[in-house]
Each structure stands twice: as C-alpha cells, then as structure tokens.
Design a protein around this nucleic acid. Structure first.
Length: 283
DNA sequence: TTGATTTGACCCCG
DNA sequence: CGGGGTCAAATCAA
C-alpha cells in the first residue's frame, strides 16, 4: 500500500471497507445456502455438491475474516511496553459502521427480556428511544469477531403491567457452533412457549408480513420463490463427474424466472468476490 | 485472568 | 441537526 501523508487513515478506511465487503459476502453466501437448502426439501444431504461448494465459500469467508481481524489487531495496536506515558488521544472512529441494508429481520414478543433462543448474545448498547417508556437494548452475536457472525437483536420493553418485550432480530447467524439439538428441543418440547407469542417476518423496510410459522425464536424460513430447475441441477451433477470442479472453477446454476431479488443479490455478491460466474436464463 | 455488562461518546443518515 | 445504532474504556462477575 502506498505510504503518503494520509497513509494511516486510508489504511483504516480500506480495512473497514474490506471488512464490510467480506462480511457482506459471507452473509450473502450463507443466505444463499439457506435458500438452496430450503429448495431441496428432500435432497437436503450435506454431501451434495451444492452444499459442499457453499460450505467451502462460507468457510473461506470465515477464515479470511478471522485472519483480517487477527492481523488488524496485531497491526494497529503497538506493543504496550512501547509507551509508558498515558496518551489520551481519542481513538480514531472514522470507520464505517456496518449498515443494516437489506438485512432480513423478524420480530417476536415475550414476557422475558433475555429469551433463551439457542444463541449466545452479548449486550453492546442501551439507548433511550423517543416515545418509548423503556430503553432499547442492543445485542450482537458473541461470535461477531471470531467468526464474523453478523446477527444482532434489539430488545424493547413495550408493556409494563405484565412485562412484555419485543425482540427484533437482524440477520441470520453464520456461526456454526450453534447447539442445534437445543433448538430442536425448544421447538418441539418447550412448555413455556406462550400461545400468544407472535412472529413476524419482513425484508428491509417493507410492512411486516404475518406468518404462520410457529417456530419459536428461530429464523423464519426463507422465501421459496427461488426454484432450481431440475434439469440444470442434473446438468451440474453430470458436469461435475466429467470435470472435477475446484475452487476457481465456474459453477453454473439456472434459476426460474420468479427467483427472489434477495437470491439474485446474494448470487451477484458472491460472484463479485469469488469470480464465480452466475448465469441465469430469461425464461 | 477472562469474558460480559455498563455507559457516555462517537458516528451515520434522514 | 438530532435520533438512534455502535464503539470501547471502565467496571463487574465468575
């Protein structure tokens, strides 16, 4: 990197941009995986070429994010022994906050503030909100830095007499160490599940859509608009046998014409980062 | 000592 | 400019 007067600032900015782009790619890859998994209801084995390819992409993002974090921590903080006098210069916060653009959200309400939902959360903020009687609490996934997991949630107390909290979830977890058995247990056997619990799903700023999904505190299923055409999937499998796809090969899929914008966006994001060609037919 | 929480400052964006 | 989301130093807790 060029070293001029603004070298340090630029480096920070570039690092922030790289980090954001990586996180976006990571998140998109994970969303795409979820979409594809949802499309293969009966063909859901982890060993399928699609799942293998996507797992490779996701772990590649995870590893890169981890390396970036390790490097930047080591690189940006000088050794403590090098300065013994207290330097009270304010930290450089000129970095870009990650936007919640197009991030999937869903809400649920419960009587407890810290609802057990199978994930580890870490509180990172609390804010008084206009027209709200109680402060809003901000949580992020514990594995935000270790694994680049983008999931966050906000908890807002919305009722006093019987305490009631609205939790808004942002983004899906990409950390893979979730204790899924615990989730299934809660889904199927949790007796504390309130019959009045509600769950809403929305994309971006659209009006929340009521959903019939009764699953407790877990992300709602992704939209099913995207269908992989069977012949294309078979073609993919056939080609795979003839020439083994490696990391820099081109994977081709076709989507039906009613695919969701979210899926397209995820595909384009991934293709941008990993040089995967995304081809889709007009029909 | 390490990980989580608190809390005021900081920053983005409408 | 201000609301609200995030950061990070100080503090707490195991």
């Amino acid at each position: 990197m060029e070293d001029d007067d603004d070298g340090v600032v630029r480096e920070d900015l570039v690092k922030a941009i790289i980090e954001e782009e990586l996180l976006r790619g990571h998140e998109s890859a994970n969303q795409l995986k979820q979409l594809l998994v949802n499309c293969q209801d009966d063909n859901n084995d982890e060993s399928s070429p699609l799942n293998h390819l996507l797992s490779t992409i996701i772990s590649s993002f995870s590893n890169t994010i981890s390396l970036l974090n390790k490097y930047s921590i080591h690189h940006s903080s000088p050794s403590p022994s090098s300065s013994h006098h207290v330097c009270k210069t304010p930290p450089d916060r000129r970095r870009s906050y990650r936007r919640k653009r197009n991030m999937e959200t869903w809400k649920r309400e419960s009587e407890k503030e810290r609802e057990e939902d199978g994930h580890q959360w870490r509180k990172y903020g609390q804010k008084e909100i206009q027209d709200e009687k109680y402060p809003r609490n901000y949580f992020r996934c514990t594995h935000k830095y270790g694994k680049g997991c983008p999931a966050t949630k906000q908890v807002q107390r919305i009722q006093d007499k019987p305490p009631l909290y609205r939790t808004t979830y942002y983004g899906r977890h990409t950390c893979t160490n979730t204790d899924t058995s615990n989730i299934h247990l809660m889904e199927e056997h949790d007796p504390t599940l309130s019959p009045s619990s509600s769950l809403f799903l929305s994309f971006d700023n659209s009006i929340p859509n009521p959903t019939t999904n009764p699953i407790f505190s877990t992300p709602p299923p992704l939209p099913h608009e995207m269908m992989i055409q069977e012949e294309d999937f078979n073609n993919y499998n056939n080609n795979k046998e003839e020439e083994d796809l490696s990391s820099h090969d081109v994977a081709m899929l076709s989507l039906s014409d009613n695919h969701s914008d979210n899926c397209l966006e995820a595909m384009m994001d991934i293709s941008q980062f990993l040089n995967i060609s995304v081809c889709y037919d007009e029909q």
